[in-house]
Design a protein around this nucleic acid. Structure first.
Lengths: 138, 138
DNA sequence: GTAACTGCAAAATATTTGCATCCTT
DNA sequence: AAGGATGCAAATATTTTGCAGTTAC
């Protein structure tokens, strides 16, 4: 049986390996975004730390995942939606960071509003972050 | 003569020291935001790396500077406007990150637009980042 | 004089690189 | 079989902590 995950990897010309599959599963299972540390922990410490670094790197290059900036140290990663292709993302939704549980959620239905930039600035990409309390932590 | 910088420090109950003054000067001189590394470099390597960490930490706590999230590793810091007080920021403007020169600029005149969140999410803070080419790099 | 700040040393973390081995195709 | 992926070891880089000496008030 061809799984969704296998397809995703093959579509991006990547070999289908155990670590890649498990890391992708993790992303699919957690609706939100993951930091490097989350991945090491939640996979049950099965991979080498280095493998996680390299896997995330490759996924980023292929446009399978994207980074979500945060104000604290930790970079978060999240799955790109299908429309994303290599080097060209349509990550135009708002990201929500819960100050209680720390989870980052992609608010896929909330589109980033337009802003007018001062003359001389040319935008290529917009990101919006919202901090607050999420549904589960109310 | 009481400088602007001395006042800023005293207003926040901080002793006026050489390193603090020089780091604040740097922030005032560069219209944009600075990463930790920038500060080490641009002050001419005069301070201990540790002093920079601790100074930024204190400034953050006092609300003199705030962090700007970025998609790459580097956290940037920028001066808060006067209205910011301890623990209570009014950092409601858009930040612009130039993909050419790498500088981060506070677009003080561009206010973050409102967004409607899904039911169950309660926002406390909004951040907006724009990537693109800045005025100087056009 | 006292409390706060700094610099040095060192510990703790995080990230990157090289290389031999193993796995996918 | 060949190329790519992984794991280990080790090199770098980053951040934190403790403490003694120094400085601001």
């Amino acid at each position: 049986m061809e799984t969704q995950i296998d397809n995703l990897l093959k579509r991006n010309q990547l070999s289908v390996t155990g670590s890649r599959k498990k890391i992708l599963e993790l992303f699919l299972a957690s609706r939100g975004a993951l930091a490097h540390g989350d991945i090491e922990k939640k996979t049950g410490e099965k991979f080498d730390r280095v493998t996680v670094y390299r896997t995330l790197q490759v996924f980023l290059e292929k446009g399978i995942i994207h980074t979500i900036p945060t104000a604290d140290n930790s970079i978060r990663y999240a799955l790109c939606k299908d429309e994303c292709s290599e080097g060209h993302h349509h990550d135009n939704h708002v990201h929500f960071i819960c100050t209680t549980c720390g989870n980052t959620t992609c608010l896929a239905d909330v589109t980033i509003p337009e802003v007018k930039l001062p003359v001389g600035f040319k935008a290529t990409e917009f990101q919006m972050l919202v901090n607050g309390v999420c549904m589960e932590c109310q």
